[in-house]
Write a protein that binds this DNA or RNA. Structure first.
Length: 731
DNA sequence: AAGGCCCTTCTTTTT
DNA sequence: GAAGGGCCTT
């Protein structure tokens, strides 16, 4: 462990801290995760703690596997038996092991958010509650909130009709979960805590085992997770947490950065260590970050500093609309790539909402530039992927009614709504899951007691499907996961089904093949770990391996990552901060932290981008600059774009025909501008795009000349004269 | 039973 | 501007 020498004094102090409770408060880029990894290595190598006795909790699976790799290289040998993973994965593991104490069997399924929503809707319908008045999403949010506070239906206040509804839906929802042999995300945590609380034997078993508990991203733990940590460290009391209040961005999921304060209160003898030196960003980036975050209250002020020097100024580009916002991003990247001053992997484009990625993707596609998009939803949310996963889930857990209903007519097999309804009612009366009735029909055919309940045709069809299901279910332990996968896909004729379903069938089949590839990676571990992983993948986990292309991601997904050159787009009121946060100071503070997280991902160059108009709803709407921009001192910003050149745009609205100038900002500073080299009407040649005609040329405040050129090959492009190598063909 | 069409209704962030 | 729900036809 000579590697300890590579740490700065603060980091060294943190890594070698004594046993007991340790709170490491660390600014962005200060080597937080590094400290955590070194701490684990230090415990193993210097303190002789067996990995078996260590529990390390990270925020994503990706972070976990990276930590494991780094840990192994630090201690120079494979690290087995350590528990290293996310809260959810860790709880799933614990619950499967201890399933005997639960109303579930150990092959329980983890429901995704769609499933959860479906169950809530079913509960609402059964209880005859109007979905228009009581939105499933909002009821589900209330249930989730309760679970995150360790409250069951009967622990909730019942003071209004609305309370009453939440309680009744919650109760039915819980029953439905048990009937499906399924748990939701919140249950994973809540059931684990309940088990540890109520069963001291089980609690002791784990608390004895985990001599050391290490936690990353502690600021984003919620009440349940906090309690879980308390219980798991209740024997040895060695709890080591690392976090940064300023980067807490999951309040809406129950996370509470005040857990940091609570930690100090609950463990008054805890050792508190600050890491303030930033190894990532230039001082300019840090100064901008600080000007934004210092407006928040309730935090340990950290004086972030960097030895990297001031660096480049931060660029603020104000585009006319969201299309040209996307155009600016892609063209800027393209120019730097062509000038060989940067490479694709240096870049990240961050945004508040997933919907914003669309225009940017389109701009990348139009420019013929590759990119990668972070987001599990993109792949796992696809219909074909969900279909196959549902079949696998059903094979593993025939009680999974949600999956059964999903796949029963995909591809169509003559079983319709009416028959399914009959099946469900019959099953309910028999005290079974529909899947179990189906299995019985499949095995016994016309000898099954349920055969008579359906018309002859329906009985036959159900029995056929039931016997397929039976075969899949039996083969789980006999054949490999890829073999089971292939068998299901063949048995249901999925490829032919896709081909007959028309458009996009190639792409769809491609996704099925990709899912099969993933299944192949799990052939050693088998179906249950595979399904569990599918349920618990985080967006970051789906980040394709380094391919040196720009990355598109939400600000949330950017947490814990770093990039040389970062664009944060959509810096408009209503988007960042998001309109849903407008009325709540706590939420507004969180939007600010979110912006802060984005800024501090930057190593070298930060671009802040916004647009005067953007289409939300399919309609254009005018937008105002984000209030957060006002908090950045002018001297740290270099302005570009429509506003910077004082091009007045006019807005119109339905109330008045009078044009309203929307340009309000004074120019950064008034000084004579150099003459443009290019004029409208010139014919030019570009190295990549060939010949084109200059449509517009203007010089910005900073002296950069910006051209709009119509190319014969690729159409209209905006470029910087200083970067693009242009040849003037005709004046 | 199944597929197609038009209607609304939203749109934060995600384990 | 997409996705789901309801209603229609075959």
């Amino acid at each position: 462990m000579d590697e300890l020498d590579q740490l700065n004094p603060q980091q060294h102090k943190a890594v070698t801290a004594d046993d007991g409770q340790v709170l490491v408060l660390a600014g962005p880029g200060s080597g937080k995760t590094r400290v955590l990894t070194y701490r684990a290595a230090y415990l193993i190598r210097k303190k002789g703690v067996p990995p078996y006795n260590i529990l390390a909790v990270t925020f994503t699976n990706k972070a976990a596997s990276e930590m494991k790799t780094r840990l192994e290289s630090l201690v120079n040998e494979p690290v087995r038996d350590i528990w290293l993973g996310t809260f959810h994965a860790m709880c799933a593991r614990l619950l499967r092991r201890e399933a005997q104490y639960l109303p579930f069997t150990s092959n329980f399924v983890i429901l995704d958010s769609d499933d959860q929503q479906t169950l809530v809707k079913r509960a609402l319908r059964e209880l005859n509650i109007d979905e228009k008045v009581h939105r499933p999403a909002s009821i589900h949010a209330a249930i989730s909130f309760a679970k995150n506070n360790l409250q069951g239906p009967r622990d909730l206040p019942n003071r209004s009709y609305r309370d009453e509804i939440v309680i009744r839906v919650y109760e039915r929802y819980e029953q439905l979960l048990v009937e499906n042999n399924g748990v939701d995300f919140d249950d994973l945590l809540m059931l684990a805590v309940k088990l540890l609380r109520e069963n001291s034997e089980v609690c002791c078993k784990y608390a004895r085992r985990f001599e050391h508990v290490l936690v990353d991203e502690f600021q984003d733990t919620n009440v349940v997770q906090y309690e879980l940590l308390r219980l798991l460290s209740s024997q040895h009391h060695n709890l080591y947490v690392v976090g940064d209040e300023d980067q807490s961005i999951y309040r809406w999921r129950g996370a509470d950065y005040r857990n940091v304060l609570r930690f100090e209160k609950d463990y008054p003898r805890c050792h508190k260590i600050l890491l303030e030196e930033n190894y990532r960003s230039t001082q300019n980036v840090l100064d901008v970050a600080r000007s934004v975050i210092d407006r928040n209250a309730n935090r340990t002020r950290k004086k972030l500093f960097s030895e990297r020097g001031a660096g480049n100024p931060i660029l603020l580009y104000e585009a006319a609309d969201d299309r040209s916002e996307a155009g600016f991003v892609v063209e800027t990247i393209q120019q730097w790539l062509q000038a060989k001053k940067a490479q694709g992997g240096d870049y990240a484009i961050m945004y508040r909402t997933n919907a914003q990625s669309r225009l940017i993707e389109e701009a990348f596609l139009a420019a013929g530039l590759p990119y990668r998009l972070v987001g599990a939803q993109r792949f796992y949310g696809r219909r074909e992927v969900k279909d196959i996963i549902a079949y696998l889930r059903l094979a593993q857990n025939p009680k999974d009614e949600l999956s059964l209903v999903r796949v029963v007519s995909v591809p169509p097999r003559g079983i319709g709504d009416k028959t399914i309804l009959n099946l469900q009612q019959l099953a309910q009366n028999a005290g079974l899951a529909p899947g179990e009735v189906l299995l019985d029909l499949g095995r016994k055919g016309s000898d099954s007691p349920y055969w008579e309940a359906f018309g002859g045709r329906s009985s036959r069809l159900l029995a056929d499907f039931g016997s397929l299901l039976d075969e899949w279910n039996r083969s789980i332990d006999k054949v490999s996961l890829p073999a089971l996968f292939d068998r299901i896909v063949t048995d249901i004729g999925y490829q032919r089904y896709l081909e007959n379903s028309g458009d996009e069938d190639q792409e769809r089949w491609g996704n099925v093949v990709e899912l099969r590839r993933l299944a192949f990676e799990y052939q050693e571990q088998g179906l249950t770990p595979f399904l569990e992983n599918l349920a618990l993948v985080s967006d970051q986990d789906t980040l394709p391996e380094q391919s040196n292309v720009p990355t598109l991601l939400t600000l949330h997904a950017a947490k814990g990552l770093e990039f040389s050159r970062v664009f944060i787009v959509g810096l408009d009121e209503g988007l960042l901060p998001h309109s849903r946060s407008r009325d709540d100071p706590e939420e507004m503070a969180e939007e600010r932290r979110l912006f802060y997280v984005g800024i501090t991902r930057t190593k070298d160059q930060l671009y802040l981008v916004r647009a005067d108009r953007r289409s939300s709803f399919g309609e254009f709407e005018f937008s105002q600059p984000s209030r957060f921009l006002d908090d950045i001192p002018d001297k740290l910003l270099k302005r570009e774009g429509a506003r910077a050149v004082r091009r007045t745009t006019y807005s119109w609205n339905s109330f008045s025909s009078t044009p309203v100038p929307t340009t309000t900002r004074p120019p950064a500073e008034a000084k004579p501008l150099p003459e443009p080299r290019y004029r409208a009407g010139m014919r030019i040649r570009h190295a990549g795009w060939g010949e084109g005609m200059v449509i517009d040329s203007r010089v910005q405040d900073d002296g950069e000349e910006v051209l709009d050129v119509a190319f014969e090959s690729v159409g209209l492009k905006r470029l910087l004269a200083s970067l693009a190598k242009l040849e003037i063909l005709q004046k």
